[in-house]
């Protein structure tokens, strides 16, 4: 039979063990929670970045319609041909494309190499593409834009599409 002192020591050890287990479980929970919150914050920040890009992309001087008289809110279809050739642009892991949706086109992709043969009868421009090796999820956002065709002096409706890879 244990004496009263031994019983008290056993009780203390038991309390310490339970406390340690609780502390470890708490730490694991806290760590997982932290990791998840950092991941969701990253995705949220990336979404904001993508929306900002969606808002500002058509205002880039590399593709925006140029006029010395007034500010025209449209994208120059001829400038889109050379956009992919720009080397100093980095939008992160994204794919940016433009598609002509009205009037309906031929479905042909527009390439700078085939400009004189395909323009203005092509209707899809791949503007930027950088894919990570491991894609866990992707999000697509689109916005309509006014596409200007300088050779025929016509405005058409295009769809700017940004795919973000996480």
């Amino acid at each position: 039979m244990s004496s009263k002192g031994q019983l008290q020591i056993n009780e203390t050890i038991l309390v310490l063990i339970i406390f340690t287990i609780l502390a470890i479980v708490g730490l694991i929970f806290f760590h997982n929670f932290n990791i998840n919150s950092i991941k969701s914050q990253y995705v949220s920040n990336e979404k904001i970045r993508t929306f900002t890009l969606l808002r500002t992309f058509q205002d880039l001087p590399e593709i925006k319609c140029s006029s010395q008289i007034k500010d025209i809110n449209c994208v120059d279809s001829i400038k889109l041909f050379s956009f992919k050739k720009l080397n100093n642009i980095n939008f992160g892991n994204k794919k940016i494309s433009m598609e002509l949706i009205y009037p309906e086109g031929t479905g042909k992709e527009c390439n700078l190499e085939r400009f004189q043969w395909d323009y203005p009868n092509c209707n899809y421009w791949l503007l930027y593409e950088k894919k990570p090796s491991n894609i866990k999820s992707k999000e697509i956002i689109t916005t309509p834009v006014s596409l200007f065709y300088p050779l025929t002096n016509e405005y058409k409706v295009g769809l700017l599409k940004i795919e973000s890879y996480y």
């Binding site: 929306f51 969606l54 808002r55 058509q58 809110n73 449209c74 009205y102 916005t143 309509p144 834009v145 006014s146 002096n153 016509e154 405005y155 058409k156 409706v157 295009g158």
Partner: peptide, 14 residues
């Protein structure tokens, strides 16, 4: 943004 772009693109369309 989409609403503004849509209105702009629609009304400009030739």
């Amino acid at each position: 943004v989409i609403a503004n772009n849509l209105l702009n693109a629609l009304l400009k369309t030739t």
